[in-house]
Amino acid sequence: MRAMIHERMAPELLPYKTDLMKNILSHIESQQQFLLDSHEYSDMNNKDLKLQLMIIETELERIQYIIRLYLRVRLNKLQQFTVFYLNDENQNGLLSSEEREYIGKYFQIMSKLYNNSFLKKVPTILSYLDDTSGGQSMIVKPEMNYPVFIKCLNDRIIDLNKDEQLELVKDGVYVVKYNIIKKYLDSDIILI
């Protein structure tokens, strides 16, 4: 759940939580199997059991909702920064294999659409989607200095820049630039 909120609030794409997702998905599968079995074999007049199954089902729904949200937020970022993440070579574990496939196809479709609708009419030199010459980069990058809300789990002193420091107290709520606290994520600081 925390992974979902982080993904939602951070401006850049965070590494894909492979182990976590694998774990949860397998849990979901076994719970679904259990539900099916119980529906088939047990006596449905038992009120106690019915309630228990209902609770299990509700939890499944809740978790599935969070997972869907997590994936949707990631896809949204991929669409926004397609070329940036496509060019980014050292993406060890940043994208899942499905996401990599998605981003490739998405880029194909996009460039085809752009080409057919207007790019073939402009001079070739201006028609590159990943043009970085001329002072203005055509690649949309995530803004790393974007301010974010954070909450501290422990007392902590972080470096703002070379000679400034910021003292964070436990349970404090702050707004700071994403770049500064990026390396502390998942340890003492959480995004909210």
Partner: peptide
């Protein structure tokens, strides 16, 4: 432009001002 401290605010209250602050 750099940072701000908002101790004691609840989640819902943060959410209310977030669309303006950020």
């Amino acid at each position: 432009e750099s940072n701000i401290q908002l101790n004691g605010l609840g989640m819902m209250e943060i959410n209310e001002i977030r669309t303006f602050v950020i």
